[in-house]
Design a binder for these strands. Structure first.
Length: 636
RNA sequence: GCCGGAUUAGCUCAGAGGUAGAGCAACCGCCUUGUAAGCGGUAGGUCGGGGGUUCAAUUCCCUCAUCCGGCACCA
C-alpha cells in the first residue's frame, strides 16, 4: 500500500506504485489537465514518475509559484530543440532556468543573428503547438557517452564524463529531439504555453571559464501566463527610464567621454548632489568618532611591494615613473593609512582608531566591465580603516553595521542584501586566526540583528568580509558597503601598538565603506529615486517662475530671499506660458516651483507647487521661506 | 579582455551606391500669458576615425576606437 497525503491533509491509498498523472486524474479531470509536475515530500518530480512509498505530495499547476522554474527550464529545452531543428550543426551545452527566465548555451561556428532569434521563437511556438510528449529515460553511463559522442555532441559527453559516478544519467525525449537532463520536466511541450519571449544574444564561456572557448548564449523570459509576461516587459521599460545613464544625461548631472574612459565629468548639478552626499557622510563619520585624513595619490612602488599589491593587483594599477623610480596611482587607500598610523608610537589607549578618507582611487578595470557610474576606473571611496585590538573587532563591527543601516535608511534604502564571505582556499593567516575573525564578524551581525547569506570561500585572502549589496533599476546587483577584517596588512606594513602589558601587539585593520564609491552610490541613488531626489539633495531645489513679465522684478526678489535662506534657486522669467514652464520644470524633476504673477507680487506671496502634485499652496513669502528652509535641512 | 550589436543635427531616431531627413531642444519674431507643450520663422551634419572597392561611398568591404547587451573580472 502507498499512502499519499495531499496538501489539504486528506490521504489517498493505492495498492501499489502510482504516478502523479494517475493521482491527478483520480482527484479530478480539471486537475489532470492542469497538472505540470508533482512535489513529493517537497521535491519537484515528473508527473509520470511512479511513487512507490508513502509521501506528502502536491500536484503542481501553473498557478503555483514553483511552476515557474519548471516552465522556464522547459522553455530552454524547447528553444534548444528549435535551434537544432533550424541549425542542425549546432551543439547544445547547458540551459538552466534563471531569475525571470532561462538561457541556453550553444556551440556553433556561425554567430546567431537577431533575425535568427525571430525564427527560433517562431519555431518554438510550432513545437508547443505540436504538443510533443516528454519522456524520461535512465541510460547507462557508457552508452550515454557513446551516444552523445556519436551524434557530435561533445559538450554533453564531457558533462556526463564529469558527473559523479553515483549520479543517474537521465535523458529526456520530446518528439524527435532528446537532451541529457536531470529534470524534472512537463508532461508535454504543449504545457509550456505561449508566455515566453527571446530577449538577447550574448557570448558566454564554456563552464564560465575565460580560458575556455566562447559559446553563444540565448536568453529568454518565460512566465505562467500572458499577463505576467506583459507585466514583466512593462517593468523592464519602466526600469529603463530610470537608468542612471539616461537620467544623468537628461538631468545634466554628468557625462563620460572616450578621452577619459571610465572617469566621470561631473556637471554642476551632479556635483551638487555629490557635495551634499559627501557633506552628509562627513557629519555621520564625525559623530561616529572617525578622524579624516588625506593621503597621496601617486606612490612609489616600494610601498605597493611591501603591501602585496604589486604582486596581486598590479595588472589593475595605473603605473608611472619619475627619475627611474616606478610609481603607481593608488588603487586603494589602506597602505597609506597604515603610514599615518605608523607615525609615532601607538598605545592600546589610542585604539580603536577610525581613520577615514574620501580617497580618489584608480583601477584599470577591463574595458568590458565599465558601466556608467556603476563601474568606473576613477572613483572616490568613502573609505575608512579601523585599527583595533582583536577583542574590539566585534564591537566595532556592530557599531559599523548600525552606522551603515542609519546611512542607508537616511538615503532611502531599507531592503539591503548582505553576504558573508568566509575563508577562501588560498589565504594568509592561521586557521585559528580565521576562526576568531569569522566568529567575531558573525557575533557582531547577530548582535546587530543582521541577516546574511553565505558566500562560501569568497573572503579576501587576508580576512572574512561582509558585503552590502544594492540592486539597480534594471535588476543588477552592485556591492556598495563592505567590511573586511584584515590580519595581514598590519603585519606586512609593521603596524603595532603597545598593550596594557607593555609589550608590542599587532592591531587588526577593519577595511570598511558604506557607500562604496560615491560614483556607484550616486548611480544607485539616481535610479532608486528615479531622478526625484529628496529636497536636501536636489541639485536645484526651487524654480521661481513668472506668469507675466510684469512680475519679473518681484520674482528676482523672491529668488534672492530664498537664496539668502540657503536654498538652491533659479528663476524662469522666459516669455512662455505658465503651463509650459510647469511642464518643463516637472520633467526636469525640480522639487518645488514658486509661481508668481501680479496677484503674488501685489501681496508679497508665492504659489508653491510640488513635484508630482497638482495643487498649489499660496503662502506669504516669509512663511514659504521658513518652511522651505526647514524642509531642506539634510539628515545627520 | 572575449562574443554579438550599435555609432547619422545638442537629444531621440528614420534613411538610401548618385546634392542628407523628422520630432524635441536652440535662435529670432508675434503673443503678456494663472499651474504638464500658444503661433510663425531661422539656423544646425567631415553620416565615429583610418584604409580599400567604385566614375561616384555616409551607404559595400577591411581595420581601429568608443558605447550598448552578456560572459569573464571586481583584490
Amino acid at each position: 500500500m502507498v499512502a499519499l497525503t495531499l496538501p489539504d491533509g486528506s490521504v489517498r491509498q493505492y495498492e501499489g506504485a502510482v504516478s502523479g498523472e494517475k493521482l491527478a486524474a483520480d482527484i479530478g479531470p480539471g486537475l489532470a489537465k492542469a497538472a505540470l509536475a508533482i512535489k513529493i515530500d517537497g521535491v519537484m518530480r515528473d508527473l509520470a514518475l511512479p511513487i512507490e512509498a508513502d509521501a506528502k505530495v502536491a500536484i503542481v499547476t501553473r498557478k503555483d509559484a514553483d511552476a515557474l522554474e519548471l516552465l522556464r527550464h522547459d522553455a530552454a529545452h524547447v528553444m534548444a530543440e528549435a535551434v537544432q531543428e533550424l541549425f542542425p550543426k549546432t551543439q547544445v551545452t547547458i540551459g538552466p532556468a534563471i531569475e525571470n527566465g532561462y538561457y541556453y548555451d550553444f556551440a556553433r561556428s556561425e554567430p546567431f543573428t537577431p533575425d535568427d532569434l525571430v525564427q527560433i521563437e517562431n519555431k518554438m511556438r510550432e513545437i508547443v503547438d505540436r504538443d510533443e510528449k516528454i519522456f524520461r529515460e535512465v541510460w547507462p553511463r557508457d552508452q550515454a557517452i557513446k551516444y552523445f559522442k556519436g551524434i557530435g555532441e561533445d559538450y554533453k559527453a564531457e558533462i556526463i564524463e564529469d558527473l559523479p559516478g553515483s549520479e543517474q544519467i537521465t535523458v529526456y525525449t520530446q518528439g524527435k529531439w532528446l537532451d541529457l537532463c536531470r529534470g524534472p520536466h512537463l508532461p508535454s511541450t504543449g504545457k509550456l504555453g505561449k508566455a515566453f519571449k527571446l530577449m538577447k544574444l550574448a557570448g558566454a564561456y564554456w563552464r564560465g571559464d575565460s580560458k575556455n572557448e566562447m559559446l553563444q548564449r540565448i536568453y529568454g523570459t518565460c512566465w505562467a501566463d500572458e499577463k505576467q509576461l506583459k507585466d514583466y516587459l512593462i517593468m523592464l521599460e519602466e526600469a529603463e527610464k530610470r537608468d542612471h545613464r539616461r537620467l544623468g544625461k537628461e538631468m545634466d548631472l554628468f557625462h563620460l567621454q572616450e578621452e577619459a574612459q571610465g572617469a566621470v565629468f561631473w556637471h554642476p548639478k551632479g556635483w551638487t548632489v555629490y557635495r551634499m552626499l559627501r557633506a552628509y557622510m562627513r557629519r555621520r563619520l564625525d559623530s561616529a568618532g572617525y578622524v579624516e585624513v588625506n593621503t597621496p595619490m601617486l606612490v612609489d612602488s616600494v610601498l605597493w611591494q611591501k603591501s602585496g599589491h604589486w604582486d596581486k593587483f598590479r595588472q589593475n594599477m595605473f603605473v608611472s615613473e619619475s627619475e627611474e623610480r616606478p610609481l603607481a596611482i593608488k588603487p586603494m587607500n589602506c597602505p597609506c593609512h597604515v603610514q599615518i598610523y605608523n607615525q609615532g608610537i601607538k598605545s592600546y589607549r589610542d585604539l580603536p582608531l577610525r581613520m577615514a578618507e574620501f580617497g580618489a582611487c584608480h583601477r584599470n578595470e577591463p574595458s568590458g566591465a565599465l558601466h556608467g557610474l556603476m563601474r568606473v576606473r576613477a572613483f572616490v571611496q568613502d573609505d575608512a580603516h579601523i585599527f583595533c585590538a582583536e577583542d574590539q573587532v566585534k564591537a566595532e563591527t556592530k557599531a559599523f553595521i548600525e552606522l551603515l543601516r542609519r546611512v542607508y535608511g537616511d538615503l532611502g534604502f531599507t531592503d539591503v542584501k548582505v553576504k558573508f564571505s568566509d575563508r577562501p582556499p588560498v589565504r594568509a593567516g592561521s586557521d585559528e586566526t580565521w576562526d576568531k575573525a569569522e566568529a567575531a564578524l558573525k557575533d557582531a551581525t547577530a548582535a546587530a540583528g543582521l541577516e546574511w547569506e553565505l558566500n562560501p570561500g569568497e573572503g579576501a585572502f587576508y580576512g572574512p568580509k561582509l558585503e552590502f549589496v544594492l540592486r539597480d533599476a534594471i535588476g543588477r546587483d552592485w556591492q556598495c558597503g563592505t567590511l573586511q577584517a584584515d590580519f595581514v596588512l598590519p603585519e606586512r606594513l609593521d603596524a603595532e601598538y603597545v598593550g596594557e602589558d607593555g609589550a608590542k601587539h599587532r592591531p587588526v585593520m577593519l577595511h570598511r565603506a558604506i557607500l562604496g564609491s560615491f560614483e556607484r552610490f550616486i548611480g544607485i541613488l539616481i535610479e532608486n529615486y528615479a531622478g526625484k531626489f529628496p529636497l536636501w539633495m536636489a541639485p536645484l531645489q526651487v524654480v521661481v517662475a513668472t506668469i507675466t513679465s510684469d512680475a519679473n522684478s518681484y520674482a528676482e526678489d523672491v529668488a534672492r530671499t530664498l537664496t539668502a535662506a540657503g536654498l538652491r534657486v533659479e528663476t524662469d522669467l522666459r516669455n512662455e506660458k505658465i503651463n509650459y514652464k510647469v511642464r518643463e520644470h516637472s520633467l526636469a524633476k525640480v522639487p518645488v516651483m514658486a509661481v508668481v504673477g501680479m496677484k503674488e507680487a501685489e501681496n508679497r506671496s508665492v504659489a508653491l507647487r510640488r513635484l508630482g502634485g497638482n495643487t498649489q499652496e499660496i503662502l506669504a513669502l516669509a512663511e514659504a521661506t521658513d518652511r522651505l528652509r526647514a524642509e531642506c535641512a539634510p539628515p545627520g
